[in-house]
Design a protein around this nucleic acid. Structure first.
Lengths: 251, 251
DNA sequence: GTGCTCATGTGATGCTGATTATACCCATAA
DNA sequence: TTATGGGTATAATCAGCATCACATGAGCAC
């Protein structure tokens, strides 16, 4: 009964990292803010999108680049990050199929405030801001949905700010694992596996700490039987205890 | 040449803390997302709003309350905050005339994630979410503007997160003072005065530190001739040096 | 299998900033 | 003017976590 644990993550993304036309329509239809549009509308919208494949670690755009496009993740995982001048990188979010990133406002923000980088092999759809604004003006339901998503992202950002401000490292990491398992969790023989590459450095960059401290904390979590973890992967074993540490439930 | 410094803040808000009808129309017209509407439209919209006055420290709503309304600051200053379970309060933002807060989505968020509290004597306009959504559906320009504002708030939140993650207390406070002076700054004989009540505790709650540390840092800033400060007020003297400390410009 | 490489684990040390405690002093009102 | 209270200043101590340094081991290529 050894604790063998090879990488249990099985992400079989588009091998060509290019999406077929049928696939694109299917993906656009699943994008939250295009849900509810007719097939005809979707086809018209589809024509405004261009697709592009990225290899792991490839950058879609750098912070500071001219903000000209809005992107939709078709397949794969995208990191949104910020490079501070002190050289310390901050990981804002990990995006998955159906989520958008880039610029939505054509008025003021002339440059991207963050950097988008492929975490896995990825297929991304892009549309120019002008075209996107034409869609926004034509389909009122789309704007409302985009607003709703943006508002909930704002809430999530405030939540992270509060935690960084009020919780010790332990609690912040516990909380991150809960959030990521809600988003990427997949039950398998190991436990509730977070289906995205996730190293100590990533955890650190999302919780405002260092890889060393993240390693220490996660090692302790594993010793305490709260998680199972290996190279670039984490699975949640004892979710309730993690929630307690995260300060989400009464101890 | 003594360093006398009485409170230079002069905020003469509505004495009755109730707005006249003319005033309300004027205020609604100045709200960014209602700009551009006709006088007739504004009158119709105005009828959907109710007004309410608040004394300093009075609470408009608590986090956890049922989210039923959207609010617009007519006059005064409003604090948006979060109470963490550890008892440590976090100050997310200080709002001024024309800014909105509360709920914009009637779908999921059934409760306010934050607490809104009057910082000064305040007049607030409120509208039910349902009525507001009727406006959003009727006036497309309004939705787009609300989306734009929400998106820029998200960027600001990410910015704060990055700083809390990467900068030491000194830099975070320097940065906060820059940001607040951009929003509330008013040039007078003392310097660039931040026209809102702002104590050490507020500074601490916005930068993720303690009042004691905020006091120490600001005392040092004053000794170095960067700011002028007193009871509940701060004025910026040497903005460039603050920016350097904030890591915004090359040293 | 063998070796190489990079993510991870872990120890020792020091510093930033929280904590605790107390003195100070400005602003308002009596 | 004087009194009072709450915001502010400052010192001493301590803890959490960053930093530096190095060991370990998993997974990939050959």
């Amino acid at each position: 009964m050894s604790t063998r644990r090879k990488s249990p993550i099985e992400i079989d993304f588009t091998e060509t990292h290019m999406c077929s036309i049928n696939m694109r329509l299917q993906i656009l239809g699943k994008v939250p803010f295009f849900a509810g549009l007719t097939h005809g509308d979707l086809e018209e919208i589809n024509n405004l999108f261009r697709e592009h494949g990225y290899e792991p670690d490839e950058v879609i755009y750098f912070s500071g680049d001219a903000a000209t496009h809005l992107f939709v993740v078709a397949d794969g995982r995208i990191k949104l990050m910020r490079h501070s001048l002190s050289g310390k990188d901050v990981l804002l979010d990990i995006l998955t199929s159906g989520e958008f990133f880039g610029s939505i406002s054509n008025v003021e923000n002339d440059s991207y405030p963050d950097t988008a980088q492929a975490l896995t092999q990825t297929c991304v759809l892009s549309i120019s801001i002008n075209d996107f604004h034409r869609i926004l003006e034509k389909y009122p339901s789309v704007v409302l949905k985009v607003l709703e998503i943006t508002a909930s992202r704002l809430q999530a950002a405030n939540e992270r700010f509060e935690q960084l401000s009020a919780l010790p490292v332990e609690g912040r990491i516990a909380n991150l694992l809960i959030v990521l398992s809600d988003k990427f969790g997949e039950l398998n023989e190991v436990g509730l596996l977070i289906q995205t590459p996730l190293g100590r450095e990533d955890v650190a960059a999302m919780t405002g700490t260092t890889p060393e401290t993240a390693s220490r904390v996660m090692s302790q979590f594993q010793k305490d039987g709260l998680i199972q973890t290996g190279r670039q992967w984490v699975a949640i074993i004892d979710r309730d205890s993690l929630k307690k540490i995260a300060g989400l439930e009464s101890g």
